[in-house]
Structures are given as structure tokens and as C-alpha cells.
């Protein structure tokens, strides 16, 4: 259990039967009044951020959260197979468990898998990945504007909004947190 004096950023706690992480906290106390700890917490299952206030005598259940690094091995039917980088233990995840990360999976990619009570609840791919364009409307030569965007389908299945000058076959750097195009990568 965590007491209020243990509260700090990134602490993982159980609230209403779900795992949450402390994003922000503030100790609030009128001089002659009762103390509260005001927090912003993020639900590790849904990503929702809400504000929660606790009384000074409350305690919070510690969430059994662990993050381990895996590398993506291969896809087998509907199942994505990963291997722990230290123990070489295998892990099978389905599309739903992968969430948004599913659109960026590349062979050998290193991902962080979050476990709650030993169950995988989230997969974080590297912040930036390099993906190849497999399908997009032909580029307009000389149009270097980055304001107008078009859709491009990437080799991993992700659809990314890209500038008009991008062509099929090009490799692009993409931010996996936002799914946004960052820049063109020169391939040797």
C-alpha cells in the first residue's frame, strides 16, 4: 500500500479495479484545514486521464506493473509472436492486445510490453520507426509544400498522412506516438 506521502510521478496504483499511473500531483492544505493530495492519473488500460483527489489518511493499492523488452519475431495466423530479449521466452499477442502498435510491427523490432498482474496490457513500439510506402497517389514533382497532405499506405499496414511529393517505394520516418510523418529517409 502507498501512503499519501509516498505519492510521486509515475507511481502505478490500483483505483476502481484498474491500473493507473500518477501523471501529476499536488499537496493541498489550507493552513488550519484538512490536507488533500490532488492528482491527475492515467488509466493504463484505456489511456483516459482524469483528476482524482485523495484525503491524507487514504492509502492506495500498489499496482503490480512490470515493463519488459521483447523483440517481434513473426506473425502466425492472428497471433503476433514476440521473444523476451533477456530470457528468450516467447509471448503470443493478438491484434487487440497490440492496440495501435499493430500498424507498426516490423521483424526484429524492439518493443516494451507492460504487464499488470502478469497479464500483458500494452505494447509500446520505438518512438520513431522507418516505414516504406507501398501505396499512394503519384507525387507532384517540385511540390515541396508540407501543408497539404495525402494518405499513404505503409509496408506494415499503417496509413500515414504524408506531403504530396512523397512517392511509392520511399522510406519515411514516422512518429508512433501520433502516427504522424516526420521526414523522408534517404535509402542507400
Amino acid at each position: 500500500m502507498y501512503e499519501m506521502s509516498d505519492i510521486r510521478k509515475n507511481l502505478k496504483v490500483v483505483l476502481d479495479g484498474a491500473p493507473w499511473t500518477i501523471v501529476e500531483f499536488q499537496f493541498v492544505k489550507p493552513g488550519k484545514g484538512q490536507a488533500f493530495t490532488r492528482t491527475r492519473v492515467r488509466n493504463l488500460l484505456t489511456g483516459n486521464v482524469v483528476e482524482r483527489t485523495f484525503k491524507s489518511n487514504e492509502s492506495l493499492e500498489k499496482a503490480d506493473i512490470e515493463e519488459r523488452q521483447y523483440s517481434f519475431s513473426y506473425k502466425e495466423g492472428d497471433s503476433y509472436v514476440f521473444m523476451e530479449t533477456k530470457t528468450f521466452e516467447q509471448l503470443h499477442l493478438n491484434q487487440e492486445q497490440l492496440g495501435e502498435a499493430v500498424a507498426f510491427m516490423q521483424d526484429g523490432m524492439l518493443v516494451d510490453v507492460l504487464f499488470w498482474n502478469e497479464k500483458p496490457i500494452g505494447v509500446t513500439p520505438p518512438t520513431f520507426v522507418e516505414l516504406k510506402v507501398v501505396e499512394t497517389e503519384p507525387g507532384f514533382k517540385g511540390d515541396t509544400s508540407t501543408n497539404t497532405l495525402k494518405a499513404a499506405k505503409m509496408d506494415t499496414g499503417a496509413t500515414v498522412m504524408v506531403p504530396l511529393f512523397i512517392n511509392e517505394g520511399e522510406t519515411l520516418k514516422v512518429d508512433t506516438r501520433t502516427g504522424e510523418y516526420v521526414e523522408r529517409v534517404r535509402t542507400k
Binding site: V28, P30, G33, Q34, F36
Partner: peptide, 14 residues
């Protein structure tokens, strides 16, 4: 309820 007073006071008034 004094606790409500301090909650409202510290969160909404102060």
C-alpha cells in the same frame, strides 16, 4: 460536513 468545506475551499475557492 467539514470535510466537504475543506475540499471545496481548497479546490474551488482558494
Amino acid at each position: 460536513e467539514e470535510e466537504r468545506f475543506f475540499l471545496v475551499w481548497s479546490h474551488e475557492v482558494e
